[in-house]
Amino acid sequence: MASIRQIKHRQQAAENISKVTGTMETISAVRYRHHYKKWVEGLDFYDNLARLAYLTVTAENTIKHPLLIANDSRCHALLVIGSDRGLCGAYNSNINRLIDVHVKMAKRFSRQLKVYAKGVKAVNYLNHRGIEITEVYDDFDEVPSVERTQGIAEGFMEQYSAGQIGRLSIVYTRFFSTASQRAQTLSILPVAELIDDLTTRATVIWPWELNFEDFILSPDENEIFESLAGMMIRTAITGCFREAALSEHLSRIIAMRNATDNALEMIESLGREYNRARQGQITGELLDIVGGSLGN
């Protein structure tokens, strides 16, 4: 049986752990609320963007744009969004499992993979697997600014238009609701796949009251589509980073809450053990005194 001092030390250690995990939970809760507010406020924007996308793809004169059509490049770009810190449950291991799937698929279909990464944990895993990283996004925290997103999006669009990449996918943890988040791959380019995703996730009622042909267009449909595609890609990239941050903080809140609860439970059981040991020690000392006095 452990001594009283050992039990006290363990209890102190559990108390310290509960303080650390409690603080981490609070920090993640504050960040989660910040991102959640922005995510909710941006939903209307997504819906309206989906309406415009739906309108353009249902035009009678089919729009033919390089970003809409699949090209025959054997190189696929993969943007992986992981977290900078651990202690967030299975968040990073789910992302790592998806990376493995993409690596196996690329090998199976003899495709080259160009990997872009965000988050220390994702970078560490890619290095551990010996996968070459084309670029690490470490110049912003969680969600990129408007200008930075524009830079990222334009870079990918240029590569796709030049035929350097045949697909752009983002591996991230999608935030469906507070009760549901899942690691998944979102195809951004060719843009037709992104439009599919936007129109299926939107909460608007289809079909819309007017057709594409009913609108006066300024400039022409091809230029409108080009700008719209740029906007969709930028919004989708920002959305992925935002949802990944949301999911990470929610995972950490849950993990840290469980850790705090477990620590409190341990403190309670160690308290009982401590009292029992102390009582045993007192009883032993009393018996010694009584035994000694009887002997005299």
């Binding site: 309206n48 415009l52 906007m231």
Partner: peptide
Amino acid sequence: EGGFARVSQNSLTVLAYD
């Protein structure tokens, strides 16, 4: 700074980057 404006049925929706 950039974006789209949609006018239909007495409703104007402006989607702007910033």
